[in-house]
Design a protein around this nucleic acid. Structure first.
Length: 868
DNA sequence: GCGGACTGCTTACCT
DNA sequence: ACAGGTAAGCAGTCCGCG
């Protein structure tokens, strides 16, 4: 169960720590009010209160900006299911004498794998830990087989009550009631789905309010702390909390801008105080922490950047060292999270770390998960650069530095009309996860919880992972890549060269469309019915049920349609009021995140509803669809020059051709084919997944090219950018000849500057991410790891996730970290091959020879490595 | 003993 | 811990070469 899973760190027994959390929650001087009646409030969080022995819902009241506690009064209790008959369970002494045992009852469930009703025994416990909190002694371990026994209690409570996190509720006479709102657009959307079967309409009625209900503005504070460190550049261990907390900064939506500062001997006042920020000095560290706890607790939401891993963890251990008593520290630490007693702690580092959030919600705008990189990419503000160690800063400098971090953290949630908060709220509603969980879990955690909720809503037994794979089997296709489980998408061989007037057609949400139209869902694929076996998925040996609609097909299909028919078009509709359009844009983005990942999780073996036949059927149909579409396009006389997974690039098609193809694919394949982009021209090298496309307005799409990769040295990137600028100005085939000349100049100048040693170390640095600790590279030692080792030898800290900047050197090792290298050690010739690859990718498309550009003589040409 | 062909590892990208 | 497909650079290995 949840609490036991959480508290395994810190060398403390699970029960012991749980107790600690209880005391924080129950005896804390900061405990929130539990009123009999409230105004409209939003559910921020649902947890289990050990002391109360029941679920605790944290409600946010936007009119007062405060948190209320609502304790479950419906008598809901933790449980799991078993197929052992009820009488047999009653006769099992180890169960019925278990100290947490409450009672047993019979329940009827629908077993989706067997497609039949099944009678199960529900074993109910007094507390969540009794179900699964104590290894080998829990009820789920005492039963020969248990279902739904690994669901955290607070989630189970959410499924059974139907409470949707992020939605408006009201406490009326002590009971929690959903608020019915009249929502703009509701009836209009329903009309679109008029002809759908009843199960789709029912699901629509449940989902629509989640997407149309307004988002409250949430009062919140961001916090950042600075800690003394005897060794500059080394972060103190939060578990030790050995050193003084120097200052604690807050920046909040209600205007609070404050730094708590510890007075120390020999520290200069300084002059450059941060503007509009109140600095309060403390002689005593303990009193400073107490004041910080007071501020933290006065906000319903506390934001940090890496508070789970550092700030809150450090404060908790430091408070213990300073002699705070239990109940005086409003923080509860778990294995890898830090929770708050009254409010909700959101660690933005965790949220931004979510790959789906990074790629789909924020369009891959930030490439590194650091406060500096994210703030720079999303809001155009950077951290303050320190020129000396933390311990040598004046009070003013320290206050400015610390406050900037807190303020950036806040602003990451306020930019674009609170975009991030709205996304969090929508993800809560879609996934049915509390704010703490949704901001920390990955996309598979979201989708798992979303689908579990739907199972429980319909009385479906949630299957055990091994049962799905056991009944439905493994994948039958062979992947192109060694080590992968099944065959994926098709990438067409590009036709190299420069092509004018290119149209890109793509299938909107191809995989979700396939999941919908082909009824792809774990329980209905390879179903037991003889008459369905002819309903084969092309390219596989799988078939799909014709009698029953699969649950995941229904949900994913519905979300796809809601997005495609309502939110996506309306998010671009200039006729709508700006505020509404923006909201539609946020909903569109959040749906996109869920939809894009919905196919992938089915093929992820750690996903609890993992079903290889479903995943490989999805890609198989995808291959079938793009292949047939290309054939049809060619039949219609169109020239397809490239395509990848769900897109085709067509050269100079007529409007009639396009219309005919679009109508055909809708009619024959039941997928929406849309014009995605119109390129003035596209430059295609012979490489797949690489191209440069210039739009009508001169904006440029660069895909795959080495010149845009993060690890490419800056001097190449800069020349590449210049080259792209020149190409974006080309309007016609005739204009190209001139551009080619200019492009040649760029390449030549880059080459000669290198030859003449005109680039700095930073220009020449490769910046490669260390994906794991240095010691874990066992098979090979790549250059960035060699460089990292040199840093380690010099006492520098190097950990997973760090970017290692290194240059090529002439010594025997061949590389050096930038920090340790001198310009006269550089192996300038070693860079030539990189220049070549980067520019040849573009030059090839322009039909320009790299070596001729460099003016290399014939003899040398023969001797150039890699040019055979 | 050395170099080319090859495989495998690693990172970063595309859809 | 969403998936598979593609590219690039380098490390390491094998094999043939008097």
């Amino acid at each position: 169960m949840s609490l036991a899973d959480y508290f395994e760190e810190e060398g403390v027994e699970a029960e012991e720590v749980e107790e600690e959390l209880e005391e924080v929650l129950e005896e804390s001087i900061y405990e929130a009010e539990s009123p009999r009646n409230t105004d409209v409030c939003y559910v921020l969080s649902v947890t289990y209160s050990g002391k109360a022995g029941k679920a605790l819902v944290k409600l946010y009241d936007p009119s007062k900006g405060c948190i209320y506690f609502w304790y479950d009064n419906t008598g809901h209790k933790p449980y799991c299911l078993t197929n052992v008959p009820i009488d047999a369970v009653k006769r099992n002494p180890r169960i019925v004498t278990h100290e947490g045992f409450d009672h047993v009852e019979e329940v009827v469930k629908y077993d989706p794998l067997a497609d039949s009703e099944v009678v199960m025994t529900k074993v109910v416990a007094k507390d969540p830990l009794s179900i699964g909190g104590r290894p080998r002694k829990s009820i789920r371990d005492l039963l020969p087989a248990a279902w739904e026994a690994h669901i955290k209690y607070h989630n189970c409570f959410i499924y059974d009550t139907g409470i949707v996190p992020g939605m408006p509720y009201r406490v009326v006479d002590g009971s929690l009631q959903p608020v019915e709102l009249s929502l703009e657009g509701m009836e209009e959307v329903k009309k679109i789905f008029e002809d759908e079967p009843p199960e789709v309409k029912e699901a629509l009625n449940e989902w629509l309010p989640l997407l149309l209900s307004p988002a409250p503005s949430i009062r919140r504070a961001a916090m950042d702390i600075e800690v003394y460190s005897p060794i500059p550049d080394r972060v103190p261990d939060p578990r030790e909390a050995e050193y003084k907390v120097l200052c604690i900064a807050f920046s909040a939506t209600d205007g609070l801008r404050k730094v708590l500062m510890l007075r120390r001997e020999g520290v200069e006042e300084g002059t450059e105080w941060p503007e509009g920020v109140e600095v309060e000095f403390f002689e005593d560290e303990k009193r400073m922490l107490a004041e910080a706890f007071k501020i933290m607790t006065s906000y319903p939401v506390l934001l940090t950047f890496n508070g789970d891993g550092f700030d809150l963890r450090y404060l908790w251990h430091r408070a213990k060292r300073l002699g705070f008593r239990k109940g005086e520290v409003p923080i509860a630490l778990t294995k890898d999270s830090a929770m708050l007693a009254a409010g909700v702690h959101v660690d933005l580092y965790r949220f931004f770390h979510n790959r789906s959030v990074q790629v789909y919600a924020f369009g891959n705008k930030y490439r590194e998960v650091t406060l500096d990189a994210i703030a720079e990419a999303l809001i155009g503000h950077a951290k303050i650069q320190l020129s000396k160690p933390m311990s040598e800063l004046s009070y003013a400098e320290l206050a400015a530095y610390c406050f900037r971090d807190a303020d950036l953290t806040l602003r990451l949630t306020t930019f674009q009309g609170d975009l991030l908060m709205k996304l969090l709220l929508l993800f809560m509603r879609l996934s049915k996860l509390p704010l703490e969980d949704v901001s920390r879990l990955g996309i598979s955690g979201w989708i798992k919880n979303m689908l579990y909720f739907e199972h429980r809503r319909r009385g479906y037994l949630i299957p055990r992972p091994e049962d799905i794979v056991g009944v439905k089997g493994q994948a039958t296709t062979r992947a192109k890549i060694k080590g992968k489980k099944y065959l994926g998408a098709i990438v067409l061989e590009p036709k190299p060269g420069v092509h004018f007037n290119v149209l890109v057609l793509d299938f909107t949400s191809l995989y979700p469309s396939i999941v919908k139209t082909r009824n792809l869902s774990y329980e209905v694929i390879n179903c037991p019915h003889e008459e369905c076996k002819s309903n084969v998925i092309p390219g596989t040996s799988h078939w799909v049920c014709l009698k029953r609609r699969g649950l995941t097909s229904l949900i994913i299909g519905l979300l796809r349609d809601i997005r495609a028919y309502w939110f996506k078009p309306r998010s671009k509709d200039k006729a709508l009021p700006e505020e509404l359009r923006d909201w539609y844009g946020v909903v569109d983005r959040s749906l996109k995140v869920i939809l894009n990942a919905s196919y992938g999780v089915m093929g992820a073996d750690n996903f609890p509803l993992y079903c290889p036949p479903v995943a490989e059927s999805t890609t198989a149909v995808g291959r079938y669809i793009i292949t047939r579409t290309i054939e049809k396009a060619r039949e219609l006389g169109m020239e397809v020059i490239y395509g990848d997974t769900d897109s085709i690039f067509v050269r100079q098609p007529s409007e009639e051709q396009v219309k005919e193809l679009v109508d055909w694919s809708e009619r024959e394949l039941k997928v929406d084919l849309d014009v995605d982009k119109r390129y003035r021209y596209v430059a295609l090298p012979s490489l797949k997944k690489n191209y440069v496309g210039v739009m009508e307005d001169g904006s440029v799409d660069i895909k795959g090219m080495m010149g845009k990769k993060r690890n490419t040295p800056a001097f190449i990137k800069a020349a590449f950018v210049e080259m792209m600028r020149l190409l974006s100005e080309v309007r016609s085939p005739e204009g190209f000849e001139e551009a080619k000349k200019a492009v040649r100049d760029v390449v030549q100048s880059c080459y000669y500057k290198l030859k003449n040693r005109q680039y700095s170390l930073d220009d020449l640095a490769f910046r490669v991410m260390l994906s794991k600790p240095v010691s874990s590279y066992e098979k090979t030692t790549p250059p960035h790891v060699k460089a990292a080792k040199l840093l380690l030898n010099r006492g520098r800290e190097v950990k997973a996730g760090d970017i290692i900047a290194y240059v090529k050197t002439r010594d025997s090792l061949g590389v050096k970290p930038v920090q340790l290298a001198r310009i006269d050690e550089i192996d300038f010739d070693g860079y030539l091959s990189h220049i070549r690859t980067a520019f040849e990718q573009v030059l090839e498309a322009l039909d320009v020879n790299f070596d001729e550009v460099l003016g290399v003589r014939r003899l040398e040409w023969f001797l150039t490595p890699g040019k055979a």
